[in-house]
Design a protein around this nucleic acid. Structure first.
Lengths: 130, 130
DNA sequence: CTTATATATCAAAATAGTTGGATATGGAAG
DNA sequence: CTTCCATATCCAACTATTTTGATATATAAG
């Protein structure tokens, strides 16, 4: 059942008693989500999605050591070339890595900015969890 | 084609010329990935995976305002109850949120720690990208 | 121009994640 | 014990992602 506002107000009224306060609370909750820009949300989700894969995390960790070309990365990953290329394209699309063409090689490096901090935070959270 | 070490060394030799240096470089790359604990990698990927969905990001943003029960979250999200519950279970499993049972209500809040910084970093990266 | 090599792209199969209605569970109130 | 309500779980349809061999593209060298 979709959550139409009327239902929401009824539900909230049962939860907190007073109907006026309930409507106010519903509006407040809706306001929080309504002011969120869906486009920005998608871009943020895309960034997390790109990091949400063990294979791609490995690539990012390899690139912490410096710029590498595809064949070096595939050696580090122990994956076929097509897989490596595909994963790199996801990371690039999300803005996490940058590409530099150099003759027949494509050299990849971490983007400037928050990628490394992100990895560090995840490690922190992982340590808390384990 | 799987990337067996011999192939890797040949490939690397073509890349940098000297066969001994090539083997050394292959070993260095392999060493970086071999010392990565696959289990930790999976946990980190799970954390990013949990954040890699617009609907779940919305939940996290709602919870920045404070503790909420499921029915409040579903009102904010404008999604059915089963969906809301499912998404909350993913976030909880990843350790991003905590649950507190209170009578027939389940109240959820952000975990202490790095969740908010993570959201802030993503926003930063998103801003750079757009 | 031909060949070799590095990388990207394609296509199809396999796998994984999401959604929401239906149903189960469990607490609170009567 | 029965009823009501909040939440969780189940299930099946749907959608998205991943994988990899095969193929295309592009650059460099002969």
């Amino acid at each position: 059942m979709a959550c139409v506002p009327e239902e929401a107000v009824n539900r909230m009224t049962r939860l907190i008693g007073d109907a006026d306060k309930a409507e106010c609370k519903v509006n407040k909750l809706r306001a929080i989500t309504n002011k969120i820009d869906e486009k920005e949300l998608d871009v943020e989700a895309e960034i997390f999605k790109a990091m949400a894969d063990p294979c791609r995390l490995k690539i990012l960790m390899l690139l912490r050591e410096g710029e590498l070309c595809v064949c070096e990365i595939m050696i580090g990953l122990e994956r076929p070339q097509s897989t490596t290329s595909y994963q790199l394209s996801i990371l690039k699309e999300a803005g996490l890595i940058k590409e530099r063409k150099d003759g027949r090689w494509s050299r990849y490096r971490l983007s400037e900015g928050a990628v490394i901090e992100m990895l560090n935070l995840a490690k922190l959270m992982m340590d808390v969890k384990i």
